[in-house]
Write a protein that binds this DNA or RNA. Structure first.
Length: 673
DNA sequence: TTTTCCCTAAACATAG
DNA sequence: GCTATGTTTAGGGAAA
């Protein structure tokens, strides 16, 4: 009886905009028990009024002020009772099911906020090992338990004090005094909110390793006080919710608003529809809209006909979900309900604190991430250790660093395919890689490093078909392959091409025919395809001044400091093929650059994986072929045309067609120029 | 906005 | 006729 009455009283509070509402707000705020204030429905209002009137009747004749005071006292008592209960439940979780009507008032507030925070960065699950996750989880739980205990203890004391003072001076107090008390309560509420935000943030961190709210039973069940599982919240609140509440409202609100309304809504004597500082609509990623609403607004509410605080037909003001049919109505609502006043200011302040906390949290998490990455040697900004023939360019995982794919035996979607920058990871999309691919051609080293990954993971390699074909051809001792052998190389090297057979073969043929860098040579056993390196490099004339990407890569390559002046000069002079080869820029290979002829001859001293990871026994032809080019083009031509017509006879003269093509393109490549 | 590159699809031709 | 191979064209997406 007591509980019901009080809770109904609180519910009725929001219906009163100012005077009465403010009083109820005190009660609500003090106890944090006014959760029911969501009160979307008139029915609930009505019931609240009934309860209030019932209380008045039971007391016989009461003045309005007395009635309000009585209601307030009731609410405070309920709140106090609730807090006691919660405090006890901290030590013995799971025994408050029977008292949900009261406990649900407050607990879900934090729980709801928690649960909404749970989803956020699931990546941590992929990063951390299960033991780490477990340890982190336990740590967070212990921290939260401690905070909750402190929090409820503090709130209980405050409420008790408030109750005593009110009982003493309540009846004679004029309305001004009530207003002062209201301010005091609001301050308390602010404190509460801050505490809740702390809980939220702690849980947010916990959410890093937890599951989605819908699945969050695991982590949340472990929460000491929260004995109420988030998944139970809707039913819980519905059970307690107003019977007369429209179905759509109940469905929309899912009871969460009930939970979270407690603090802000009633405490600020907000309109009936006020709801928690946190929005009820979790985003797909699990973040509450309120926390991201401002940012979201830039993304999906940027249209001129929208407003950052207006979305999905309702007001996004924290704690307000007033339905507005259109923007005009919303603007009107905004100007009337959220004008510049104490309440709005307070809410704004709270929101600022939320944002501030989140920013702090973000900073912490970022720092942690950096530390983790540093620990895992994933130092993007750190200069790569030289002797890395690999990616001079934008490879996010420089050599020697951890390559997720390599370690990821998981054929599933990797965290990030190697060599695939921040760009598209969509396995279904085209494997394009403009700057890296052609200019720097880290393909050989990258393939060497991530050979196993590509072999097992159904991930499309981030290289163009041309690059792959070239790589396939150059990997062979005699630099020539039949079409079928190229096919086999694709399927052997990449799981992706084993599965997706529909289009890529056609694409391979198309590329072979289209690009002049691929030279078809008639062989005794048929036609084989070779690579005209010079032509391949010509596809985009790599001029130092012409290609920003190239220049950048050059700079980054030079930053390793291993390039000597002469080599740099050589680079500058031989403006083309060399530049496109990361291995050439690689300091570690710089020493081996000059003895080009050796590598050209196929000396297995391939500069490839300095980390010695999964380097295939085969050489990485592209590199020496480049080197050959750099040094002297004739040698390169000799090299590339070795597989020429007379089969295995690396005689340049025997290479008829390629030479012709080259001559043609020297005049101006039609394809790639 | 335009250009360029790449991918994809398709049609067609040729040879075995 | 079928298949594999090779050539060519066209259109769309994405990046520069």
């Amino acid at each position: 009886m007591m509980v019901e009455s009080a809770s109904e009283t609180i519910r009725s509070a929001p219906s009163g905009q100012n005077g009465v509402g403010s009083l109820s707000a005190q009660a609500d705020g003090g106890g944090g028990a006014g959760t029911a204030g969501t009160a979307p429905a008139a029915g609930r209002d009505a019931s609240g009024r009934e309860a209030a009137s019932g209380g008045a009747d039971s007391n016989g004749e009461m003045s309005p002020a007395e009635l309000l005071h009585f209601q307030q006292q009731q609410a405070l008592q309920v709140a106090r009772q609730f807090l006691l209960q919660q405090a006890s439940s901290l030590n013995s979780p799971g025994n408050n099911d029977s008292k949900q009507s009261a406990s649900a008032v407050q607990v879900p507030v934090s729980v709801a906020m928690m649960s909404q925070q749970m989803l956020t960065p699931q990546q941590m699950q992929q990063i951390l090992s299960p033991p780490q996750l477990q340890a982190l989880l336990q740590q967070q739980q212990a921290l939260m338990l401690q905070q909750l205990q402190e929090y409820y203890k503090k709130q209980q004391e405050q409420l008790h004090l408030q109750l005593l003072t009110q009982q003493q001076a309540g009846k004679q107090q004029p309305k001004e005094a009530l207003g002062n008390k209201q301010l005091a309560f609001q301050q308390q509420l602010l404190q509460m909110q801050q505490l809740q935000q702390q809980h939220l943030l702690n849980l947010q961190r916990q959410g890093l390793v937890s599951l989605q709210p819908s699945q969050a039973s695991g982590p949340l069940q472990a929460l000491p006080q929260a004995a109420v599982c988030p998944t139970d919240l809707p039913q819980l609140w519905k059970g307690e919710g107003a019977p007369g509440q429209p179905a759509e409202d109940s469905g929309r609100q899912e009871g969460l608003d009930l939970a979270s309304t407690a603090v802000t809504a009633t405490s600020f004597a907000s309109p009936p529809k006020v709801s928690p500082p946190l929005s009820h609509h979790p985003l797909p990623n699990g973040q509450p809209t309120v926390l991201t609403s401002r940012r979201d607004s830039s993304s999906h509410e940027e249209t001129p006909s929208s407003h950052p605080l207006y979305g999905h037909g309702e007001c996004k003001w924290p704690g307000c979900e007033t339905l507005c049919e259109d923007l005009g109505q919303f603007i009107k609502h905004l100007n009337t309900e959220h004008a510049l006043d104490d309440r709005s200011t307070a809410q704004c302040r709270v929101q600022m604190q939320v944002v501030q906390q989140l920013e702090i949290q973000l900073a912490k998490e970022s720092e942690r991430l950096q530390a983790m990455m540093a620990h895992l040697h994933m130092r993007p900004s750190e200069p790569k250790p030289f002797s890395q023939p690999v990616t001079v360019s934008a490879d996010p995982f420089p050599d020697g660093l951890v390559h997720p794919p390599t370690s990821a035996a998981a054929p599933v979607t990797p965290l990030r395919p190697p060599g695939l920058g921040s760009a598209s990871l969509h396995s279904g999309g085209p494997a394009r890689r403009r700057s890296n691919d052609k200019f720097c051609s880290p393909i050989s080293s990258e393939l060497a490093q991530n050979h196993e990954f590509y072999k097992n993971a159904d991930v499309r390699p981030p290289f163009t078909y041309a690059s792959l074909i070239r790589q396939a051809i150059l990997e062979t001792p005699d630099r020539q392959l039949t079409l079928n052998e190229i096919y086999n190389w694709f399927t052997r090297m990449f799981a992706y091409f084993r599965r997706n057979t529909a289009t890529w073969k056609n694409a391979v043929r198309h590329n072979l025919s289209l690009h002049k860098c691929f030279v078809r040579v008639e062989n005794v056993k048929g036609a084989v395809w070779t690579v005209d390196e010079r032509e391949y490099q010509k596809r985009r004339p790599p001029k130092m001044t012409g290609s920003p990407t190239l220049v950048k890569n050059m700079i980054s390559g030079l930053s390793y400091g291993a390039l000597n002046a002469s080599y740099q000069a050589a680079l500058a002079e031989s403006s083309f093929p060399l530049l496109s080869n990361p291995g050439m820029l690689n300091p570690g290979s710089a020493s081996s650059l000059l003895p080009l002829s050796q590598e050209d001859l196929g000396v297995p001293g391939e500069p490839l994986p300095s980390n010695g990871s999964s380097s295939p026994p085969r050489l990485s032809p592209p590199q020496y072929s480049h080197q050959i080019q750099v040094k002297e083009e004739p040698a390169e031509a000799e090299e590339d045309r070795r597989p020429g017509p007379p089969l295995g006879a690396p005689n340049p003269s025997t290479v008829g067609p390629p030479e012709d093509r080259d001559l043609e393109e020297d005049l101006g490549g039609e394809d790639m120029s």
